[in-house]
Design a protein around this nucleic acid. Sequence first.
RNA 1: GCCAAGGUGGCGGAGCGGCCACGCAAAUGCCUGCAGAGCAUUACCACUCCGGUUCGAAUCCGGACCUUGGCUCCA
Length: 476
Amino acid sequence: MKIQSTMTGNKENFQPIHNNRINLFVCGPTVYDNSHIGHARTYIAFDVVARYLNYRGYSVFYLQNITDVDDKIIQRAAETGASPRMLAKRFEQRYLEDMHALGVTNVNYYARATEHVPEIISQIERLIELGFAYETQSGIYFDESRFQDFGKLSHQSVEDLKKHRIEPDPTKRNPGDFSLWKKRQDGEEVTWNSPWGLGRPGWHIEDTAITETYFGAQYDIHGGAMDLIFPHHEAEIAQMEATSGKKPLVRYWMHTGFLNVNGEKMSKSLGNFTTIRDMLQKYEADAFRFFVLLAHYRSPIDFSEEALEQAGKSLERIRQAARIIEKQLQTAPASSATKPTDPSIDPDVAEAKARFLESMDNDFNTPYALRAVFDLVREVNRRINEKTISRKGLQDASEQLREFGEILGLGFYAAGKKSQGKAEAITGNLIELLIETRQKLREKKEWQLADEIRARLNELNVVIEDAKDGGRKYYV
RNA sequence: GCCAAGGUGGCGGAGCGGCCACGCAAAUGCCUGCAGAGCAUUACCACUCCGGUUCGAAUCCGGACCUUGGCUCCA
């Protein structure tokens, strides 16, 4: 298995630190607003990474932090009149709901920054002792000049980093020194006691304090989006490697490409964002997941409604095949209906699986893995068309398709959105009644009325596909 | 200015030395009462440009051009 690491720029052979165990950390959100679909892209990508590693037999501990204390939270709270704590709680809850709705279900533990302040303080104390951090009037800062490797992840030299867009704080030793602890300013209500008085943690330190707590000084995979490489992940490397003296902090750095809109990064500040909630009002979660998986996780993707609809149709092709298989299994006789000369589909199923795994092993190449899925779909459809597939072949293909879906987190066998509900037991029976009646009309060749019923049901998103044996129905 | 990621058919998007993506959309045929779905076949003769290496380059090397992102808020 190979993983491309941002540190080297190459695909590296994957080798966990502890045998079978994998510690995976992905930077979570700052909970000051609803998350948008750019966030969703990243978390779906790592959800699939975790799913696949688990499938491959590793024991994955997937850890994510929640930044619930931060300038932005305080600022937003001040704007809206809410307390920062309550605001963070609210948007954390919404974030978790969004992830659930998207099928992102493989994070083992969400660690809040505010629940790890003692660990944060401990790490800062050690950095001061070791001479990597110093105190000023405004807080504690990391002394970048003391850490030789600064810039190694983003491939920038210390010289490169001397240029700045923002005017540096003159009280710091080096312009690039970043904040570890912010001392309390007038009126701030979110504070903790520390050896340096009341204050709150800087942004970068929470992640290394959290990963040190659960993983120790070194771990396997760190993920996040491209924009976190600098300065955030550089800061993490500096903090933890300086504290522990152990290198590297992380074996494999995985970074996802941006979700763009008209070629521009989707972001809060540009105002071109769509929240996950809004998107899910209009589209099915799995259609979005499919859209994400259609591109490699490192590639930028351009979001548009057209692209999402196209992805939805592609997914429908797989689901359609799943429906056809189910239908066949229901109606096919128990014994094989094929001729003895018909070749078994087993080799095709095996080949699809091998290609799928090979693609996933190659830095989680989901688009190439999907090719194997589509190849299997076509082969099964072909054989059903030609009546050269046995009952066992259908079952094997069905199981394989289901397994692909589980690895990718896609419900190939899902009925489609909005198929379940409360009053639907009655509705379902009424629909069945209509369909039966219509079938009788067809037998009497009352085509006009039969077609009208089909068209009207279609308007209600009940799709009927006719065949000699009565066809099948499904909901969209 | 420095660093990074890109530029592939009508669209999305893999590949990264020779063959083939895959999907969406399209065309023709098969099937079908019709529609839909499915299958088969086809087309799009695609790789930003200019040099070079090679029997052979989208892929390797050199040089341009363009797009996006980062340069201390960011998934």
